[in-house]
Nucleic acid binder design. Structure first.
Length: 512
RNA sequence: GGCCCAUUCGUCUAUCGGUUAGGACGCAAGAUUUUCAUUCUUGAAAGAGCAGUUCGAUUCUGCUAUGGGCUACCA
């Protein structure tokens, strides 16, 4: 029987969603959509110690911003809830009891301190078939004593009784068969009496089974515990509906950031975000930058992330979400970790900026204008949109629009020294005076007609075109760069153009 | 330390035994431009090493090296 594809993204609300987690969510989403299946968002808040307020909202907001749609979850509801693990305690308790009754799990009373001491004493200590006989658990203690301890409210844990020396096979859709000997697995804690919560392993298996998940798509860091999960499916007798496993290669630090997995600190070090949205840590008050606040377009982030560990097999790299969905498959996922190439991320954003509607970009640009002391309402949407269209080809981010086009909004306050050296000599003030006179005589100040008149004047006088035009540019822009000169003057207007030339004449002094 | 996974240009990757090993980012050069940027063209740049299988290995196997992950009453 073909089961309906059901996948889940199961983050832990212990902080802001990491960009690696975002990619995992994205691949889940792409796969679900590709096969017309369901995408579940499950909140795995079984670690009461590390719970961070606000993290769950952050996850929802981030996924929504990126366009990663959720079919079932805490907010969306669904027929398999609750979707928050802390609300599923009864379910876990019941399933732990099933394992206990079947003799596949046991109570362990060793305190964290005792275990700590054990590990100090034996460097390679592992709670398993060899050592459990010498620990304080329901396998070694008399039944009545076990009962007494439990009744007395002792803070026990329930451990999974792993049979030693069994070769456990995991069939991974990216890596193929992975075999691990069960002897290297320890008797994992499944349930903690102290907070009445299961650990990841138990909750994960129970929920995936109950939620009828068909494909477990997660990071490679879970590969070593996959055999444990297979063993748990066996213990519950659920092997016939055990999901397919897919372990995604990890996102690694970029060059220059050292070695290992991409971490929070790498972003700060190299100046790129590792979180989708800005995050304000409720404890420390520290702020971590986000892709959204940095001026990335969500589609660009999605496209960039999709290609880190997967490719379509074709040469096209710019792909919409729909195209990604249509082309996604695990056959084209790579096996090895990908260094996080944030420069390529900037390129993707540049490409999406070029394709984005100018009016929409203008809206995104408004906060940047305000941050630079410009009131958008003084200029109007149409004006802003036109400036955006003139400079967007030269930036990767909305924020850079200011640096490339501030002269549309404010007159230069300084003049670039190297351009003065190159383009401003002793004769220039007089020529600029002439230019002012020419400009004053132009009735239609739009780009084309004014250009014709000015060019005709330069030709008639026999002036050097480049020198005059660049001196002109220097007075208006402050340096020799920017879009077509007469597009700029059309936008800022005759009066402002002439005022800037006059100020330039007064303030720019030739440099020997 | 133990176990698992991986290894093609600097980076992301294509290749599913026979290719001048392709593309993209970045980098460099040239062209274009009244400036800068864009754009266009071109260029440099890779199969970790050693064995084996094979008529033939980047592709299959083994070893070594390197990288990564896991080894909690965290996920």
């Amino acid at each position: 029987m073909e089961r309906r594809v059901r996948v889940r993204f199961a983050p832990s609300p212990t902080g802001p969603l990491h960009i690696g987690g975002v990619r995992t969510a994205l691949y889940n989403y792409l796969f679900a959509r590709r096969h017309g299946g369901d995408m579940i968002l499950r909140i795995e808040d079984t670690d009461s110690q590390r719970f961070v307020p606000g993290a769950e909202d952050y996850i929802n907001e981030a996924l929504a911003w990126l366009g990663i749609g959720i079919d079932e979850g805490v907010r969306e509801g669904g027929n398999y809830g609750p979707y928050k693990q802390s609300e599923r305690r009864d379910i876990y308790r019941e399933h732990v009891q099933m394992l206990l009754d079947a003799g596949k799990a046991y109570y362990a009373f060793d305190t964290p301190e005792e275990l700590e001491a054990k590990r100090k004493e034996l460097p390679n200590f592992q709670y398993d078939a060899h050592t459990r006989t010498s620990m304080r658990n329901s396998l070694t203690l008399p039944a009545d004593e076990v009962k007494a301890l439990i009744d007395a409210g002792e803070k026990y844990v329930v451990r999974f009784k792993i049979e030693p020396d069994r070769n456990v096979e995991v069939n991974d859709l990216i890596r193929g068969k992975v075999t691990i000997n069960s002897s290297i697995l320890d008797d994992k804690v499944l349930y903690k009496r102290a907070d009445d919560l299961p650990t990841y392993h138990l909750a994960n298996i129970v929920d995936d089974h109950l939620m009828e998940v068909t494909h477990v798509i997660r990071g490679e860091e879970w590969l070593p515990s996959a055999p444990l999960h297979v063993l748990l499916y066996e213990a519950f007798g659920w092997t016939d509906t055990m999901p397919q496993f897919v372990h995604l290669p990890l996102l690694l630090k970029p060059d220059g950031a050292g070695k290992g997995k991409l971490s929070k600190r790498d972003g700060d070090k190299l100046g790129f975000p590792v979180f989708p949205l800005e995050w304000h840590d409720p404890e420390s008050g520290a702020v971590s930058m986000g892709y959204r606040e940095r001026g990335y377009l969500p589609q660009a982030v999605v496209n960039f992330l999709a290609l880190l560990g997967w490719n379509s097999g074709e040469e096209q790299e710019i792909m919409s979400m729909d195209e990604l969905i249509a082309k996604f498959s695990f056959e084209h996922c790579s096996k090895s970790g990908a260094k996080f190439d944030y420069k390529k991320g900037a390129w993707f954003n540049h490409e999406y900026l070029l394709r984005e509607d100018d009016a929409k970009l203008a809206q995104l640009f408004k906060p940047v204008l305000e941050a630079n002391g410009v009131k958008p309402e003084d200029f109007g949407d149409e004006f802003i949109t036109r400036t955006v269209s003139l400079v967007k080809g030269r930036v990767s981010f909305v924020s850079e629009l200011w640096d490339q086009g501030k002269f549309f909004y404010v007159a230069p306050t300084a003049y670039a020294e190297k351009d003065i050296k190159k383009r401003w000599n002793a004769e220039m003030p007089a020529i600029m005076e002439e230019l002012v006179a020419v400009l004053e005589g132009i009735a239609d100040f739009t780009s084309k007609p004014s250009e014709e008149i000015v060019l005709a004047w330069i030709a008639a006088k026999g002036y050097h075109l480049g020198n005059v035009m660049n001196a002109f540019r220097l007075t208006v822009v402050g340096e020799c760069k920017g879009p077509h000169m007469f597009d700029i003057t059309e936008l800022i207007g005759k009066e402002e153009t002439i005022a800037r030339i006059r100020r330039g004449i007064a303030e720019i002094k030739p440099i020997a």
